[in-house]
Design a protein around this nucleic acid. Structure first.
Lengths: 211, 211
DNA sequence: GTCTATAGGTGGATAGAC
DNA sequence: GTCTATCCACCTATAGAC
């Protein structure tokens, strides 16, 4: 079936290709030439849509955050409870990793020292949103006896976010996605509260079905 | 006092400068020109000591691993117990972060897709050694009731390694080392066994003194 | 061991025709 | 919107003098 090009469609394709490139090779690991080759246009054409690489990078983060927020809203709607929310959150990462990719923002965090200031600001915002969402889930989940942990939800959220990003990075480095799955299962198992633990044992296991 | 140059001294200086550059900017984020400027020699001189950037990268990892193994042996000698071993392990990371740097190998793991094969091999080895050491501490610590956790020591080691690396990356991205400290304290607190927990309460706190 | 000089390639970015 | 052509800065690496 013939693909009809919408206005702005090329810009979206560029973002899609660039996002995958950053998520695999990093912001300093790809060039306009890479995108041009895959899209079969010239480098000059890309500069029409994204005047500078900095601007492209900024738009990449914003797009990634928008998609992520949508995913989180989907989880909030569909999840069975707060423990399930964490499991679904982990499954997002597992899905990205299954495509051989890193979290866009985890990748950029590693390159933070070399990023233009315009990108650093929006990058921060992505992590803030993640932590805030996680902290909310943790706080509500503990109140409902679904989650069990000591200390402030915000601190556990910080720990979880870093642990997920780090587990993802090492799993990809090893070329073994199960390294992420196992780490995520460990982390979540430690958070399982009495309510969920009972249901888990009733179902006969503690697996989080992240696979 | 006049500094006497030993043979091989220049090579060591190059490695020192290059290591810091990789740990802050990444392997794709620095060049021979950066090292040359800081050492006040020409780029050509650097190629005498390290013919290719790949070779320099390989040597960087080997050096970093050697230093790290020494540090681990120091911990094994001096630590009061297995919980203290984990705390000291975390403190190594905290020290690196205090200098505004990332773990060399954590940085390289992010850039894994763009690394030459010769570097990937030695990089893997660094993580294997870390996991093996952590797993040993965990196994012995659990037996001694100093550490408490479910599942295989190896899996918890995988989780811990990823969590430390990830926490480090995000803390540096935020420019806030305490983000690492808090995450590490959370992780270790969850591993505290009855023996250590008792001593901890007796001393009146659960802080790991990572600061 | 360090230098000058340079090769050969790629980086992001722009001008101007179509 | 896309092209050709081009700029200039930077990259890794080498040759050969000192």
């Amino acid at each position: 079936m013939q693909q009809l090009l919408q206005p702005g469609d090329t810009a979206q394709r560029i973002l899609g290709i660039a996002s995958r490139l950053v998520q695999t090779r990093g912001f300093n690991g790809f060039s306009y030439a890479d995108i041009a080759a895959e899209l079969q246009v010239t480098k000059a054409s890309l500069h029409y849509h994204f005047p500078s690489k900095t601007e492209l990078g900024r738009r990449l983060i914003e797009r990634y955050e928008r998609n992520f927020v949508e995913a989180l809203q989907g989880i909030d709607r569909e999840a069975a409870g707060d423990f399930d929310r964490l499991a679904r959150y982990a499954r997002i990462y597992a899905g990205v990793l299954a495509d051989g990719q890193m979290c866009l923002c985890g990748m950029l965090a590693a390159e933070h020292a070399t990023l233009p200031e315009a990108m650093r600001e929006v990058l921060q915002h992505y992590f803030d949103i993640n932590e805030h969402w996680l902290a909310g889930v943790l706080r509500r989940g503990r109140k409902a006896d679904e989650l069990r942990f000591e200390g402030a939800p915000r601190e556990v959220a910080t720990m979880l976010l870093g642990a997920f990003e780090g587990a993802m990075m090492l799993a990809r480095s090893y070329g073994d996605p199960r390294r992420f799955t196992r780490a995520a299962e460990r982390l979540l198992a430690d958070l399982r509260g009495p309510a969920v633990a009972g249901a888990g044992r009733a179902r006969g296991g503690s697996k989080l079905h992240l696979h």
